[in-house]
Design a binder for these strands. Structure first.
Lengths: 147, 147
DNA sequence: GCTTGACCTCAAGTTAGGTTGAGCTTGTAG
DNA sequence: CTACAAGCTCAACCTAACTTGAGGTCAAGC
């Protein structure tokens, strides 16, 4: 308890590379937690850095904050997550990530190998024929698949 | 000219699976084109289906409409794109797609193999150490990387 | 003891990507 | 020739993910 120095928002912002306002925002969304000092200032434990790193990387590949938050539900509330905890999260995401990787490859290779193939019928084009039974509901405005 | 039946918005919407309003939107954004009948109704040539298919797949993997529009700039204005045209677009995207695939794999494998590795220092974690010199400017609000 | 910079809250603004609705025109089928 | 579904335009609204700004507090240096 003496050695674990806690971090201020500014420090987390600097070390993680995200804006202070974004950290506030993540906290409001339940993605990270903090406790307050006597003077009402936020203090973060070090594992917030890991969380933020994951948030950023996940976002970059198109995972929404809501999905990340949902995944983070599997992490323990009170204590610093163990390797085991992170592994649970990992396996929970693995399928979705595999699917996305496959999609990307299909797009990349499709653009090269299929794009000029003459299959003007959209129904038959392998580019289009993805088995999209993905659990992609309630994305509101920016929904990715047709209703 | 007699055989190439043109499509109405409704037909394109049905065949492509996107809403009519979305097609209007894509057109306003310069992603697709149409010409008008005497009665001011849109008519699309068949290759719009290919374009829409690509738009949807690209979006699914996190490519913005602006990026797609930019890529589409390489396609010819007047005529139906040839295999050659699509190939140009393909190679233009390949690097970006490869990068995204790598990111996804890093996330997927990172979550499994690295996440519990103890590297609490965010600066050194392989998850975080992406060489992100990507041309990702002007994304305004939903920017994915730190300023 | 006061100034300066880091914090705090809360409301409002921004961008992307669309959807919804009102009010009006077209085109096709009976 | 008259319904009525399908189109058209334009403005308003919506969610996600933040940023900006106003107005006020806290703490460390001089």
């Amino acid at each position: 308890m003496a050695l674990v120095k806690e971090l201020t928002v500014g420090q987390v912002a600097m070390r993680s590379g995200v804006a202070v306002s974004a950290l506030h925002f993540y906290e409001a969304r339940g993605l990270i937690r903090s406790h307050r000092t006597a003077g009402n200032q936020r203090r973060y434990s070090r594992d917030v850095l890991r969380r933020v790193a994951i948030i950023r990387v996940a976002q970059e590949v198109g995972i929404s904050l809501a999905e990340i938050a949902a995944a983070f539900q599997s992490l323990p509330e009170g204590r610093t997550p163990t390797r085991e905890d992170w592994n649970l999260l990992s396996t929970a995401w693995r399928d979705g990530l595999d699917h996305k990787i496959a999609q990307l490859k299909k797009l990349r290779d499709g653009l090269t190998d299929c794009i000029g193939c003459g299959c003007m019928s959209i129904d038959k084009c392998p580019l289009r024929n993805r088995d999209d039974k993905l659990a992609r509901e309630g994305t509101g405005a920016r929904r990715l698949l047709a209703p």
